[in-house]
Amino acid sequence: MATTARETVVVRRPYDVVAKVATDPGVMLPLVAGLGRFQFIRDAGDGTEEWDMFLDIGAIHVGGRVQVVSESSTMRWHSLRGTRHSMLVEVSDHPAGAEVSMAMTVQLGGLVMGRLAERLARSIAGRHLIAGLEQLRHHLEYGPTE
């Protein structure tokens, strides 16, 4: 079973500027994982990078090692170990500047409990995505948060 949380934010900065930052894992992952922990592991040499990224959710840690692929207007990653999930960050043009959308898909095992857990995971992931997007927006519009 898989469930996807998707959130968007409008950033009042030129598309090019937003795309450059939003597809840079060195900026984006710390923002998304700002409530948990993150660590750069290695440059795989094939245009991808490996990172450890975890969200702290109560007593458990959701995440693991991810492989990140960056392109001009998108960044995506998928899990190599840990919680099975994938993420897609997309930047598109918007009359006010640029729109950034983030979609996180989480896969959990089980039938009834699995479905319940996925439902919970979707709303938890959604709130984390909103927090990450708001941090990104503020970072681009006003500089790093104090």
Binding site: L35, L120, S123, R127, E134, R137
Partner: peptide, 22 residues
Amino acid sequence: YDYVTSTMQVALSSLAARTILP
């Protein structure tokens, strides 16, 4: 106004992300 409300929105969203179940 935009700066103050933006600063507060970032903090509020981060605080909300600590919620596991409403």
